[in-house]
C-alpha cells in the first residue's frame, strides 16, 4: 500500500518553509539610499562601552526615558527632540511631543518613523533588548551608564551632552550643578548627618540600597540612609526598621497631600508607633525628581537638605534641640515645603 500521506505532509510543510524563506529573503535590510558623503559621521562610545556611529550634527533625538528628556531640555536642545515616552512629563512642553510608547515597551515602528539620528536610553528604565533591536535596525542608540552616585549622574549628563554635540552647554550646566552642590556642602559643613529611611513604598516596605544614586543624594543632602545593603530596591521588615530606628522618614512624591495621608495612616498602626520618627512626626516630603538621574535631582537634594537641617538655611532662630513642640513645629515646617514638580 503506497504511503500517499507521505506526499502531502511535506507539500504542506514545504509550502510553509518556502513561503517563510521567501519572506525572510524579503526582509534583507534595504540598500542605503543616502550616499554617505552627504553627512559626516563620528564615532562615540556610550555609557555601556558600546561604539556608535552617529551623524556629525544630531538633528533628531528620541528619548526613551524621562530623565533623558529632562536633560535634553536642560541642555537647551529641546527643538531637536523628535519623540519621547509616555512617561516624560517634565517640563510640561514634553507632554506635547510625539510619543513612542513606554520606556520598557516602546514601539520600534514609531521610533523608526521619527528617523532619529540618536536614541537616548538608560540602563535603569530601558531594556537591553530594545537597544539591541535598535542596533540591528541600524538606528544609533546611546545607552547611559547606570549611575551609582550623584557624581555619576553629572558625568552622564556630560557624556550625553558630548554625544549630542553640545559639550559647551553640557559643561556649563554641570558647572552650575556642581556649584550648587559645593554650596550645599559648605552649608552642611560640620553638621552630623541625620539618620533617614527613604521609603519607596510603604506596603510592602521597600527602600533603596547603598549602590543607588538616591542613597548618595541623601548623603549630599545631609542624611544617611540607615539601610546598607547591596540590593538596589530591598524589601525590609518593620522589625529591622524599628531596630535601626531612623530619625526621619523621607518620601518622594508629586502629591504631598497623598503622602501626608499615607503618613497618618502609618502612624495609626501600632507596629509603626514604636519608631522615633513616627512619635516625633519627623518626615520629609521631596519631589519625585530624586528618582530621576537628571539635572532636577539637585533641586530635590536641596529641598531635602533644607528639611533635614533647617538651621543651616533658615534665618537664625534659637532652637532647643529635643523639645517636642519644636519638633512638631519642624514637622509642620517640613510639610509646608511644596515639591517642585509640575504634575
Amino acid at each position: 500500500m503506497p504511503s500517499v500521506l507521505g506526499l502531502f505532509f511535506p507539500l504542506v510543510q514545504f509550502s510553509l518553509l518556502i513561503g517563510c524563506a521567501a519572506l525572510t529573503a524579503l526582509a534583507q535590510p534595504p540598500p542605503t539610499s543616502a550616499t554617505p558623503a552627504e553627512r559626516a559621521f563620528r564615532e562615540l562610545t556610550d555609557g555601556a562601552g558600546r561604539s556608535i556611529k552617529v551623524p556629525a550634527r544630531i538633528e533628531r533625538i528620541v528619548s526613551l526615558a524621562p530623565s533623558m528628556t529632562e536633560t535634553v531640555f536642560a541642555l537647551g536642545l529641546q527643538a531637536r527632540l523628535a519623540g519621547v515616552t509616555d512617561h516624560c512629563d517634565f517640563p510640561p512642553e514634553a507632554l506635547a511631543l510625539p510619543k513612542v510608547g513606554g520606556g520598557l515597551t516602546p514601539s520600534l515602528e514609531r521610533i523608526v518613523e521619527l528617523k532619529p539620528d540618536l536614541v537616548l536610553a538608560t540602563t535603569l528604565l530601558n531594556r537591553r533588548e530594545t537597544v539591541d533591536s535598535l542596533d540591528r535596525l541600524g538606528v544609533p542608540a546611546f545607552s547611559a551608564r547606570d549611575p551609582q552616585t550623584v557624581d555619576d549622574v553629572l558625568l552622564e549628563i556630560t557624556s550625553v551632552a558630548s554625544a549630542l554635540g553640545a559639550s559647551d552647554q553640557g559643561a556649563a550646566l554641570v558647572a552650575e550643578l556642581r556649584a550648587r552642590l559645593a554650596a550645599l556642602d559648605q552649608a552642611l559643613a560640620g553638621r552630623a548627618p541625620r539618620r533617614v529611611l527613604f521609603i519607596v513604598w510603604h506596603d510592602p516596605l521597600i527602600t533603596i540600597g547603598r549602590n543607588t544614586f538616591i542613597a548618595d543624594a541623601l548623603r549630599r543632602a545631609g542624611g544617611l540612609s540607615v539601610i546598607d545593603v547591596e540590593q538596589d530596591w530591598p524589601r525590609i521588615s518593620l522589625e529591622e526598621v524599628v531596630r535601626l530606628d531612623p530619625e526621619v522618614l523621607v518620601f518622594a512624591s508629586s502629591h504631598s497631600e497623598g503622602v501626608r495621608q499615607t503618613f497618618e495612616s502609618l502612624a495609626a498602626r501600632p507596629a509603626w508607633q514604636g519608631l522615633t520618627a513616627v512619635k516625633n512626626r519627623q518626615y520629609a516630603i521631596i519631589s519625585d525628581a530624586v528618582n530621576r538621574p537628571a539635572p532636577r535631582l539637585l533641586a530635590a537634594i536641596e529641598e531635602l537638605a533644607r528639611q533635614l537641617h533647617p538651621a543651616a538655611f533658615a534665618s537664625p532662630v534659637k532652637e532647643t534641640p529635643g523639645a517636642r513642640s519644636e519638633k512638631q513645629e519642624n514637622g509642620r515646617a517640613m510639610q509646608k515645603e511644596k515639591p517642585s514638580c509640575s504634575r
Binding site: 500500500m1 504511503s3 500517499v4 500521506l5 507521505g6 505532509f9
Partner: peptide, 10 residues
C-alpha cells in the same frame, strides 16, 4: 497493524 508508517485507509 496493516499500514506502514503514515498511511490512509484503503
Amino acid at each position: 497493524p496493516y499500514g506502514r508508517g503514515l498511511r490512509f485507509e484503503t
